[in-house]
Design a protein around this nucleic acid. Structure first.
Length: 565
RNA sequence: AGCGGGGUAGGGGAGCCUGGUUACCCCGCAGGGCUCAUAACCCUGAGGUCGGUGGUUCAAAUCCACCCCCCGCUACCA
C-alpha cells in the first residue's frame, strides 16, 4: 500500500512549541513510522510556511529581508525536527521553487476552469508604512463597547469578532499612524460552486467524527468564496491576468504544499514522474495530521482546490485532528512565555522521553493539560518502571539464568506458555489496529498493558527460582518474556524509535535484517541464539523539580546573551 | 449568540457512537508478597448517587429532552 503522510506546515516565524508538535508533526511521524513497519511505501512530507505579513513585518523589524529571516528559521526548525527523530522524507519550505511553480500552475488551472473571480474590497492602508494591513495589524476603538485598543479581528474587551473596517479611529499597529481605507481588487476562489461536491465528499470519506461534524456544519451554514490574493510583497506572485503586485494568500498556498512537497521529493530522487503514483493513483492513500483549528482547510478548502484544478487527485482519506494541549492550565503563549518550546525541551530530556509523554497524552478526545507533574509520572512510572525495567530484568535474566546464551525453540514450549504467547500476539494486533486508526493514546495504553502483563508474568512464574529447581522451565518462561520484549520493541518504534532500537540492539533482535524491525515479525525464532550485549537500563527517572529549575536557568541565560525571540 | 468539544473515586484519563455480567487504566493512599530487575516488580483493599432533572427501556455512564458549569472556534492570525 502506498501512503502519503503529511502534517500541518509550521509557520516559520518562530520555533514550534510542544502543543504545535503533538498536534501535527509528531502524530504524523508515529503514523508514518507505523506504516513503514508494516511494509507500506510511505512518503512523509511537510514544510515551513514562510510567507505572509507577520513574517514580513518581523523581518523588517529586525532589519533583514523576509527571505533571509524565513530561511534561517526554516533551517533551525528542520534541524530540530531531525533531533526530535521526525522521519520526514521531505521537509521543505514554501519558498521552494517547486512549490512556487506548482502553486502558480495550479491556480492557473483553477482560473481556467472558472473558479476564480474578482471583487473590489475596502482594506486598511498605512500611508507611512506604504502597505495594506491585515486585520491583525489594525487597532482602534471597538464599535460595540467603546474599548480601545480593540484588535482588528476581535475586541479583547467584549470578545466580539470584528471587521477591521468597523473600527473607530483605526490606526496602524506598526507605526501608530492613522490608516486609510483604500479600494483594492482581490481574486476569490468560488468555493460555493463546489458545495455539492464537498458535501458528497464528506459523506463518502472515512474521516473522524469530529472532522465530519465540524465540516458539515460549515457547509450547511453555506460556503463563502475564499479570498485568494493579498496586497503584500512577501509571497507567491499571483498568476492571474491583471493581478500584478498581488500575492497568493498564505493559507490558500501552503495547503498545496502537500502536493508540491511530494513532487519535489521524487524530483530529488531522480524519479520525477513517480509522484503521480501517489497523488493520482486511486490505490494510494492520503493522510493529514492537524490541530482542530485547521479542520476546514483540510476537509473543505483543500479538497475543493484539488477538484477545481480538474486533475484527478486523490482526496484526503484520513484527516486526524487533535484538540489543544494546554500547559499547566493555560494556553501556550509565545508572548507570555507559557509553555515549552521544542528547542528547550531537547536541552532538558532526550527526544524519546518527550515523544512518549506527548503521544501518550495526545489530545484526541478533548483538550489535555500538560504539566511537570504529568511528565514526571509518564516517564517514571510508565516508561521507566513498567517498560524500561521490564526490558532490563528480562535481558539480565537471560544472562543469569541462561548463561548469556538463550536458544530454546518454540517447539519445545509447553502448551501453557504457548497460550501466553498468543495473548502477546493478540495485544500486538490490537495495538496495530490502533496505530492504523491514528488512535495513538490507545496504542500507548495497550503498550503499557503489554509491559504490565509481561511484568506480571515474570512475577508469577519466578524464573529466578525455577533456575534452581527446574532449569528447563525457567528457559520457557524466558522465551515468553523475550517474545514480549520483542513485541514491545516493535510496538514502541513509532513512538520512541531510539529506545526501541536500543532494546533491539541489546537483545540482538532482527539481526538478519540488520536490526531493522518489522511489525509482523515478533517471534524470536529467527533471533536464536539470543546473546544480549551491553545490557544496561534504557531509561532513567527524571525529576520535575530539577527540570523546571533547569528550564528557568536556561531562559535566563538566553535572555541575557541574546535578544528574545 | 451560534457551532464544536468536555463534565466519570483525592488527582489525571478510557468506556458512551454499536445500551446489559463485579464501571476499566495510571498516579496517590492502606495492607501484603517477591527479592530476577532500575528504592523496581506483583497481589489485595479503601475510595464512585458516571454534572443536574425528567423521559425511553426488562435494563442507561451509554439513547432522548431540558438545565447548569468549563474550554475552543466563528471564516483577514498563520
Amino acid at each position: 500500500m502506498k501512503w502519503i503522510v503529511t502534517s500541518a506546515w509550521p509557520y516559520a516565524s518562530d520555533v514550534p512549541h510542544l502543543g504545535n508538535l503533538i498536534g501535527s508533526i509528531l502524530s504524523a511521524d508515529a503514523f508514518a513510522r507505523y506504516h513503514r513497519l508494516v511494509g507500506d511505501e510511505v512518503v512523509f512530507v511537510s514544510g515551513s510556511d514562510e510567507h505572509g505579513t507577520p513574517i514580513e513585518v518581523e523581518a523588517v523589524r529586525r532589519g533583514v529581508s523576509p527571505k533571509d529571516f524565513a530561511s534561517a528559521n526554516h533551517k533551525r526548525i528542520s534541524e530540530l525536527f531531525k533531533a526530535w527523530g521526525i522521519s520526514f522524507d521531505n521537509y521543505t519550505e514554501t519558498e521552494s521553487p517547486t512549490h512556487i511553480e506548482f502553486v502558480r500552475d495550479h491556480y492557473m488551472k483553477v482560473y481556467r476552469n472558472g473558479y476564480v473571480f474578482t471583487q473590489v474590497e475596502r482594506v486598511h492602508y498605512c500611508p507611512r508604512d506604504k502597505r495594506f494591513l491585515p486585520d491583525r495589524f489594525v487597532e482602534g476603538t471597538c464599535p460595540h463597547c467603546g474599548f480601545r485598543p480593540a484588535r482588528g479581528d476581535q475586541c479583547d474587551n467584549c470578545g466580539r469578532p470584528l471587521d477591521s473596517v468597523e473600527l473607530i479611529e483605526p490606526y496602524c499597529v506598526l507605526c501608530g499612524g492613522k490608516t486609510e481605507l483604500r479600494e483594492t481588487t482581490q481574486w476569490f476562489f468560488d468555493l460555493p460552486k463546489l458545495s455539492d461536491y464537498i458535501m458528497d465528499y464528506l459523506e463518502r470519506a472515512e474521516l473522524s467524527e469530529n472532522v465530519v461534524n465540524f465540516s458539515r456544519s460549515w457547509v450547511r451554514a453555506g460556503l463563502r468564496p475564499r479570498s485568494l490574493t493579498r496586497d503584500s510583497e512577501w509571497g507567491i506572485k499571483a498568476p492571474f491576468p491583471g493581478a500584478e503586485g498581488k500575492t497568493i494568500y498564505v493559507w490558500m498556498e501552503a495547503v498545496l504544499g502537500y502536493v508540491s512537497a511530494i513532487i519535489e521529493y521524487f524530483r530529488v530522487q531522480g524519479r520525477p514522474q513517480e509522484w503521480r503514483d501517489y497523488w493520482l493513483n486511486p490505490e494510494a492513500k492520503t493522510s493529514f495530521f492537524i490541530g482542530k483549528d485547521n479542520i476546514p482547510f483540510h476537509s473543505i478548502i483543500f479538497p475543493a482546490l484539488l477538484k477545481a484544478s480538474g486533475e484527478n487527485y486523490n482526496e484526503p482519506n484520513l484527516i486526524s485532528s487533535t484538540e489543544f494541549l494546554t500547559f499547566e492550565g493555560q494556553k501556550f503563549s509565545k508572548s507570555r512565555r507559557i509553555g515549552i518550546w521544542i528547542d528547550e525541551a531537547l536541552e532538558l530530556l532526550p527526544a524519546d522521553y518527550w515523544r512518549y509523554a506527548l503521544i501518550s497524552m495526545r489530545p484526541e478526545t478533548g483538550d489535555v493539560d500538560f504539566g511537570w507533574g504529568v511528565l514526571e509520572e509518564k516517564i517514571n512510572a510508565e516508561l521507566n518502571d513498567a517498560i524500561g525495567n521490564f526490558a532490563n530484568r528480562t535481558l539480565i535474566g537471560v544472562q543469569r539464568f541462561a548463561e548469556g546464551r538463550f536458544e530454546l525453540s518454540r517447539a519445545e514450549l509447553s502448551p501453557k506458555y504457548a497460550q501466553s504467547l498468543e495473548a502477546i500476539l493478540r495485544r500486538h494486533r490490537d495495538i496495530g489496529e490502533c496505530y492504523a486508526k491514528a488512535e495513538f493514546r490507545s496504542s500507548c495504553r495497550l503498550i503499557l498493558e503489554q509491559a504490565t502483563e509481561a511484568n506480571r508474568f515474570l512475577s508469577v512464574e519466578e524464573p529466578w527460582r525455577l533456575a534452581r529447581t527446574d532449569r528447563r522451565r525457567s528457559l520457557e518462561v524466558l522465551y515468553v518474556a523475550l517474545n514480549a520484549l520483542k513485541a514491545l520493541a516493535v510496538e514502541l518504534e513509532p513512538i520512541t524509535p531510539r529506545l526501541a532500537d536500543e532494546i533491539i540492539a541489546q537483545a540482538g533482535f532482527f539481526r538478519k535484517r540488520g536490526g531493522k524491525p518489522l511489525w509482523d515479525d515478533v517471534s524470536i525464532e529467527d533471533d536464536l541464539p539470543i546473546e544480549p550485549k551491553n545490557v544496561a537500563p534504557i531509561v532513567r527517572k527524571i525529576s520535575a523539580v530539577e527540570l523546571k529549575a533547569k528550564l528557568e536557568e536556561l531562559r535566563t541565560r538566553k535572555t541575557q546573551g541574546k535578544p528574545p525571540r
